[in-house]
């Protein structure tokens, strides 16, 4: 356990070094939030367009969603890089579980982004966009739990895609297509409740709404309390299922690992 904490700490410190990247992605998040809010405000001007839903709620949705996206950004080419350079063969020999190593690496930078980007941007948003606070303290706690589970859902989806680098030399295309699916179907860019019913029904069958949508609904207090329990159970089930798929793929991948030169 201490070993993995240490690895996460290293990854955290690694992030501090790249200051330009840090400011770039912070500004990026703020600009995107700002632009999206401008668009939603324009939509809101058509009278009653938002169906009585307060603009404030929508703005809060957008802000939380974009901030979560910033924090949930992972190093998509970490495993690919290891496979391509052949470093993975020595990593596999080291006395740790490779998958836990990758996980701690990502958690380290997630914690960094949470402290250094999420919190400042959140405070800024309270002033800039009049962000609504969580519905109540209880919902805040549920939100934190659900957000952590959302991260794990996304992580396990990502892991399945990353593992494909054992079969394909480059994973850029798969990663990008996966990103497109996540961005649209997770409700990250437009709240799922605005989508047509057939699409909502489809999304219900996928793990995508368990990433951002569930935690944000809880934050906003838009999910009835009896549904919260079910949604969280659903998140956990998806984590187990996706982890299972990842596990099987991993077993196969390590069996057929071919390192090209190194």
């Amino acid at each position: 356990m201490r070993l993995y904490l240490e690895l996460a700490k290293k990854s955290f410190q690694n992030n501090i070094v790249y200051r330009a990247d840090y400011f770039a992605s912070l500004i990026n998040a703020i600009v995107l939030i700002f632009v999206n809010i401008a668009i939603w405000k324009a939509i809101n001007e058509e009278e009653g367009a938002l169906g009585g839903l307060q603009l404030n709620i929508l703005i809060t949705y957008i802000v939380i969603s974009f901030l979560m996206q910033t924090v949930y950004q992972m190093d998509e080419y970490f495993i690919e890089g290891k496979v391509r350079t052949g470093l993975i063969s020595t990593d596999l020999l080291k006395p740790f579980y490779f998958r836990l190593f990758v996980f701690s690496y990502n958690v380290g930078s997630m914690v960094f982004k949470f402290i250094m980007q999420f919190i400042p941007a959140m405070l800024l948003s309270v002033f800039l966009f009049r962000l609504l606070p969580p519905f109540n303290t209880q919902m805040l706690l549920y939100f934190i739990l659900s957000a952590i589970l959302g991260y794990l859902v996304l992580y396990n989806i990502n892991f399945i895609v990353w593992i494909s680098s054992f079969w394909f030399y480059w994973t850029f295309s798969l990663v990008t297509i996966k990103d497109a699916a996540v961005m649209i179907l997770s409700g990250a860019l437009i709240p799922i409740w605005f989508m047509p019913t057939w699409l909502i029904d489809f999304i219900e069958l996928t793990p995508f709404n368990a990433i951002f949508y569930t935690p944000i609904l809880i934050y906003l207090g838009m999910m009835p309390e009896d549904e919260i329990f079910m949604s969280i159970v659903k998140q956990i089930l998806w984590i187990i299922a996706l982890f299972g798929i990842g596990h099987i793929l991993w077993k196969r991948a390590t069996k057929k690992l071919v390192v090209q030169g190194g």
């Binding site: 990008t176 297509i177 497109a180 961005m183 649209i184």
Partner: peptide, 8 residues
């Protein structure tokens, strides 16, 4: 992939 990304 680029097509999908731009279609978002």
């Amino acid at each position: 992939a680029i097509f999908c990304r731009e279609m978002i």
